[in-house]
Design a binder for these strands. Sequence first.
DNA 1: GCCAACGTTGGC
DNA 2: GCCAACGTTGGC
Length: 137
Amino acid sequence: MAYWLFKSEPDAWGWDDQVAKGDAGEEWDGVRNYQARNNMRAMKIGDLGFFYHSNVGKEVVGIVEVCRLSAPDSTTDDPRWDCVHIRAVKPLKHPVTLEQAKRDPRLAEMALVKNTRLSVQPVTESEWKVICELGGV
DNA sequence: GCCAACGTTGGC
DNA sequence: GCCAACGTTGGC
C-alpha cells in the first residue's frame, strides 16, 4: 500500500466536486509534468491519497482512493500523458493547512513542504499518519 | 498581483 | 550536451 498527495486549485476542481462524483470517481486529468505522471503510473488500485487545495485554503481537506490505473488522459491526444482515476473516501475532520505542516518537524521532509510545485506527490507512511492525526481521522 | 522556484524548450 | 529564455505553479 502506497500513499500519495493530489493537488488541485479548488476554483478549478475542488473536494466538493470530487465528492459529487461518488464512488465512480473521476479522471485526474491535466497533469503535464513527468514526475507527477510517473507517480501516477506507480499507483495501484486501492492506494490512498490526500486531496490538497492549493492557492485557496492551502490545506489537506480529504482522503481519496485510486480506483483506476493510469490510462491515457482524455483531455489530450499527446500519448505522453496519462492519469489515474480517484474517488473520494472521506473528509478530514480538521483540514491540515500548509502552515501546520511546515510547523511540524515530523513533516519537514514532506514533498508538500520541500517541493511545492509538484502536483502529484508520494507521501511516506509516517507522514500519512501524522497528517491523519492532525486531521482527526 | 508579484515573484521565486522549477521544468521545459530550443538554439548553438 | 549546455544553457539561456521562457512558461507555469503556487505561496505570499
